[in-house]
Amino acid sequence: MSTPTIRNVVLVHGGFVDGSGWQAVHRLLTRDGFTVKIVQNPTVSLEGDVAAARFILDGLDGPAVLVGHSYGGAVISEAGAHERVAALVYIAAFAPDKGEAVNTLIADPPPGAPVPPILPPRDGFLFLDRDKFHASFAGDLPADEAAFLADSQVPWGVGALAGAVTEPAWRHKPSWYLVATEDRMIPPAAQRTMATRAGAVVVEAIGSHAIYASQAAAVADLIRQAAASATY
């Protein structure tokens, strides 16, 4: 494999989870010589998460591919304006347009789409029903791994879901989108619509919402291709 022009990859996780889920992707990409940084965004507010991502981007020595999973897609759409960002990669992620927030995007679910088992907010934070976590979030992970994720949930701030994107970076930078075809959190049809709207190169893979962990090879492949194709 020839040395890619872009050697940095920054990974942004979504709601309910933390950055450790990127471990397999990290392993695959570092093995190929990429420098991979994982943003541990607190998911309390969009501004806070964008700041966390910018903090990591500021510390890089060159151009990067910025990757977001799920809610992380909203974060990279906003933080992607950073000068170091050469390409955006959405992994089963929200890709809000100007003025849209995650709330706007989930307001109108397609008819018949499974409803994510989100419990009513407690003190401004959301959790997923632990008993439905495996089936809804991570159907293709082994039961014990899914149970661990369910029990180690990061509370997701309702403020983060309300944070609107000001000027989506996908309007100005090349974007890539991995649709998880078996996703029961964000309906695949909604993913396709957002991806097409963003003008992204769309790739589908058979996988649950936790595709960033269950199909790390597909995710890493897409990031590699984005790094190889983007010009900086």
């Binding site: 589908e204 893979a205 090879a217 597909a218």
Partner: peptide, 9 residues
Amino acid sequence: HRLHLDPMP
């Protein structure tokens, strides 16, 4: 349309 193939479960 694109489908990316992963290793077999």
